[in-house]
Amino acid sequence: MASSENLKRTEKLQLMLDEEELKAIDDWRFENRMPTRAAAIRELLRRGLLATPHFEEPDTDDASTRDFGVVDEKVRATLGDETN
């Protein structure tokens, strides 16, 4: 984990989520006792980047941003369908 003394965050990222996606992130945050929503999202991004070798490449041919979401059938199954 990076030392907070040496960490300078200078870039802002805007991300639009629907209610179901935000609920899934917030539920994960509280279950894992993360201090903030931003910290939870950073940790989820870190885990996703570390897990990249274990996944197939995404199909990006003719894909739009709507083709990429946070919550899908696999996530719903993992969360016990609590996101509905």
Rank of each mutant, 00 (worst) to 15 (best):
L17W: 00
A51V: 05
A51Q: 07
R47G: 14
R29P: 03
E43W: 12
E56K: 09
E19Q: 14
D18K: 13
L17I: 01
L50N: 04
E11M: 10
E43Q: 13
E21A: 05
R46Y: 09
L17E: 00
P35S: 12
L49D: 01
L15M: 11
L13C: 06
D26E: 14
E11I: 15
R46P: 01
D26F: 04
P35R: 11
A38I: 02
R33I: 05
R42W: 10
A39E: 10
H54W: 10
F55H: 12
L17S: 00
L22R: 07
I41C: 02
P35I: 06
D27T: 12
F55I: 08
F30A: 09
P35G: 04
H54S: 10
A51I: 08
I25L: 02
A39R: 11
E19P: 04
L13F: 09
I41G: 01
D18A: 09
A51W: 05
L45Q: 03
K23W: 05
L45F: 09
D26Q: 13
L15Q: 02
D27F: 08
K23S: 07
K23R: 11
L17K: 00
F55P: 01
L17F: 03
F55K: 11
L49I: 05
I41M: 08
K23H: 12
A39P: 04
L15V: 15
E21G: 02
A24W: 07
K12R: 15
E11W: 09
E31K: 05
L49A: 05
A40E: 06
R46Q: 06
